[in-house]
């Protein structure tokens, strides 16, 4: 029975101990702890969102960089292509010019050669004529030393002239 009877003395001590504990903890401990935890929660949340936005920014920057690099690559290809085309063009032009030059030179040389040859031929012909005249003179001089020979020669020459004339006539007709 006595177990179920509350005691005023113990109630007094309970009031003191619980009251003091409640006062101290409610004033100094629990609000401090819960407030700090809330602050930390807030801090973590803001940190997380900041990290997220930073990550997003980073991803955007990365994307931009990639695009930039791709464009640069494209530009590079284009420039290289152009350069190649230009080079080809330049080379072929140079080749053509060289060929033209060579042809011209050759032509000139040929012309020169022809002119020179003609001059040489002319000279040669003149020399030949003079020479043959000379030889002919000498032969004729020698051959005409006796009468008979002179006659034979005249005959022969006449024949030849006649034959030549005939041949000319034939070719004319």
């Amino acid at each position: 029975m006595s177990l179920l009877v509350p005691d005023s003395g113990l109630l007094f001590w309970m009031l003191i101990s619980f009251g003091v504990v409640f006062f101290i903890l409610a004033k100094f401990a629990f609000p401090m702890i819960t407030k700090s935890v809330e602050e930390r929660k807030q801090f973590v949340e803001t940190s997380l969102s900041e990290a997220r936005s930073a990550k997003e920014t980073l991803a955007k920057v990365e994307e931009d960089t990639k695009a930039l690099i791709a464009e640069a690559n494209k530009e590079q290809g284009r420039v290289l292509n152009e350069a190649a085309v230009q080079r080809e063009k330049m080379i072929s032009a140079a080749k053509e010019e060289a060929a033209e030059q060579a042809r011209n030179t050759l032509e000139d040389a040929r012309e020169q050669i022809r002119i020179e040859r003609e001059a040489v031929m002319l000279d040669l012909r003149r020399e030949m004529a003079a020479l043959s005249c000379d030889i002919a003179e000498r032969i004729v001089k020698e051959k005409l030393s006796d009468k008979q020979n002179q006659m034979v020669l005249i005959e022969k020459m006449l024949d030849e002239v006649v034959k030549e004339g005939d041949a000319k006539e034939v070719s004319l007709s």
Binding site: S8, L10, V21, L25, A29, M32
Partner: peptide
């Protein structure tokens, strides 16, 4: 109003409780 065994135990327990929480606070 005697400080009985349970009264003292209450005080000791309260002290232990404060000893646990106040350093953390």
């Amino acid at each position: 109003l005697s400080l009985t065994k349970m009264g003292l135990a209450l005080l000791i327990n309260s002290f232990v409780l404060l000893l646990i929480f106040l350093p953390a606070a």
